[in-house]
């Protein structure tokens, strides 16, 4: 089935998917979902309306939108968990309603919740078995993934004692257990601290580097901006914008310069050069660090102290 050695896709081949595959990773056509309202059959909640989407293999696609805009519903329909009212969805050319379309897909639901009574290790073993893994191969894979998400030390603990961020991590490990070609993540960084969410970002970039298609939903725009090749913006179930991130957000006629150690004279010289040309200086300000960077630096120091105790 997977005869194409996808790991040979090089980072240079970029977002468009280096090796052209016959069918896109995800194809969504005229997808509509209307949830019935009990006792009011005529009135339904339109969660998704006439959605068309095409995600090529190897892309990182971000589905953005405010709360209740239909992101989760769309992802669930793509995975065949919710049946569409109209329209169809395909994964690698196979209809989402077929069970085998899920063979090469890993899914992290929003606010994942697993069996509390299982330990992290048992959880991964369970999901691995569902994907047809077993024996030494499964064991090796479990160790690898626990290591990857940083839960090796908590592997024997029951999930009932895990924190929210740890649950998110085990959810991510579970989604990757069978080395899927498409990973669907519903708000992967919800409830994860800044360091953790940066690690998840790195992980997603790593998946991308290995040629794995990632479809994620988020309403954290800054984060999506960092990792997505393409984004779609949903509002009330309608796809209002869609395209390559760079093109969507670039302001064509503006350029930013960030200068370190510039003397006041240099700055005024640059300004006068600009004034003499027909360009226009729009803004001039001191660079600031981001709150995120500040937070990360501060907590990193903390950790070093506790470790040296």
């Amino acid at each position: 089935m997977t005869d194409s050695p996808r790991r040979l896709v090089t980072p240079e081949s970029g977002g468009g998917g280096g090796r052209a595959e016959a069918s896109p990773a995800v194809a969504v056509q005229r997808l509509t979902k209307i949830f019935p309202v009990p006792l009011h059959p005529a009135r339904g909640i339109v969660a998704v309306k006439d959605l068309n989407l095409r995600i090529e293999a190897g892309e990182v696609f971000g589905l953005l939108g405010p709360n209740g805009s239909g992101k989760s519903t769309t992802l669930k329909m793509i995975l065949g968990l919710v049946s569409p009212t109209r329209g169809r969805t395909e994964i690698f050319g196979r209809d989402s309603r077929l069970v085998e379309s899920r063979e090469a897909v890993g899914f992290l639901p929003e606010n994942p919740y697993f069996y509390k009574y299982l330990s992290g290790e048992e959880t991964l073993r369970f999901f691995g078995r569902l994907c047809g893994l077993r024996g030494a191969r499964l064991k090796e894979r479990i160790n690898e993934l626990l290591e990857l998400v940083g839960l090796t030390r908590a592997r024997k603990r029951r999930l009932g004692t895990y924190s929210k961020g740890m649950l998110q991590r085990i959810g991510l490990a579970q989604a990757l257990i069978h080395d899927p070609r498409l990973v669907v993540l519903d708000e992967p960084t919800a409830g994860v601290d800044p360091a953790g969410s940066r690690e998840i970002r790195d992980l997603i970039l790593d998946l991308k580097r290995r040629g794995i298609t990632v479809l994620l939903s988020s309403h954290l725009l800054a984060q999506a901006q960092e990792i997505c090749d393409r984004v779609g913006i949903l509002a009330d179930g309608v796809l209002v914008r869609e395209g390559h991130l760079r093109e969507l957000i670039a302001i064509e006629n503006q350029t930013e310069l960030v200068i370190a150690d510039a003397s006041p004279q240099l700055v005024s010289e640059i300004e006068s050069v600009i004034n003499r040309s027909n360009a226009k200086l729009i803004e001039r300000r001191k660079s600031t660090t981001t709150l995120e960077r500040l937070f990360l630096e501060a907590t990193k120091n903390d950790k070093r102290m506790t470790k040296s105790e």
């Binding site: 990857l148 940083g150 924190s163 961020g165 740890m166 991590r169 690690e199 992980l203 506790t306």
Partner: peptide
């Protein structure tokens, strides 16, 4: 004090 390292994703360079 026990520090559970639940905030360190290790992406080993050998992962690939």
């Amino acid at each position: 004090m026990v520090v559970i390292p639940d905030s360190c994703f290790v992406i080993p360079s050998s992962f690939d």
